[in-house]
């Protein structure tokens, strides 16, 4: 569905991505892990055309997208939930959703399904999104990305700043999403979350992919986790 081959990205004079290669198979949920500053966010932004790749190729389905503009990339059916969520604070929850639905008013059935995933959104439908709690904003950001069926979802750290109980809800929501035929790429720091949802995994370090494989294999190999991510076993039941 999505594949990156030899992708390099410069930001100003800095060489951030230094040859990124990985694939996100159709219908799977792939986790992109890595330490802070590894280049995960830069990788997603490069896929979206928000940074321009200086070398390499990004393929989405049959289209080569590394030279396309952000709106055109989005129109291929790619939805992006940025690390800071990108909520429009001055718009209501409803208006945020309306804007995300490019095809016109959101479909009633789909809205009901989304409200099932994130009941808070129905409750705060007419509230300014800036007044939502952090967790509710994250829910809105994800809801916005799925207001219409999309081929590929790119989600940057959906558990950032969430309380453990809410992380449980978020895992449930992604499980439900996986039942649709959406392909998903999630950047994560929370290993529990990653392990609960990931089919495949890619690990980044210093602008390169240093590991690719199945999520369950990485989850079972604590030595490899420690080596790649600096995780200690105790911290992750």
């Amino acid at each position: 569905m999505l594949s990156l081959a030899g992708v390099n990205t410069h930001i100003g004079q800095y060489h951030i991505l230094q040859g990124v290669d990985f694939e996100v198979p159709r219908g799977s949920l792939t986790m992109l892990l890595g330490r802070n500053g590894a280049g995960k966010t830069t990788c997603l932004r490069t896929i979206m055309g928000m940074w321009r790749a200086s070398a390499g190729r990004v393929l989405c389905g049959a289209s080569e997208i590394q030279d396309m503009k952000t709106p055109e990339i989005a129109r291929l059916g790619i939805a992006y939930v940025p690390e800071n969520m990108g909520i429009f604070a001055g718009l209501t929850v409803r208006e945020n959703m309306l804007l995300a639905a490019r095809g016109g008013a959101p479909d009633e059935k789909r809205l009901a399904w989304i409200f099932g995933l994130f009941p808070a959104l129905e409750k705060f439908w007419q509230t300014a999104a800036g007044n939502l709690s952090g967790g509710q904003k994250q829910m809105l950001a994800i809801a916005r990305a799925i207001v219409e069926p999309r081929k590929l979802l790119l989600v940057d750290e959906p558990t950032k700043g969430l309380a453990p109980a809410i992380i449980g809800n978020m895992i449930e929501a992604f499980r439900e999403l996986k039942r649709t035929d959406t392909t998903i790429l999630v950047v994560e720091q929370n290993f529990h979350f990653a392990q609960s949802l990931g089919d495949a995994v890619a690990v980044m370090d210093s602008g390169r992919i240093v590991h690719r494989g199945r999520m369950d294999a990485l989850a079972a190999d604590s030595a490899l986790q420690a080596k790649l991510l600096g995780l200690s076993l105790e911290a992750h039941p």
Partner: peptide, 19 residues
């Protein structure tokens, strides 16, 4: 709606697929 959203965060409006 697009203008109001764009005033807040033009980049995100583009990421939603608007030119």
């Amino acid at each position: 709606l697009l203008v109001r959203a764009g005033v807040e965060n033009a980049e995100m409006v583009e990421a939603l697929g608007y030119r």
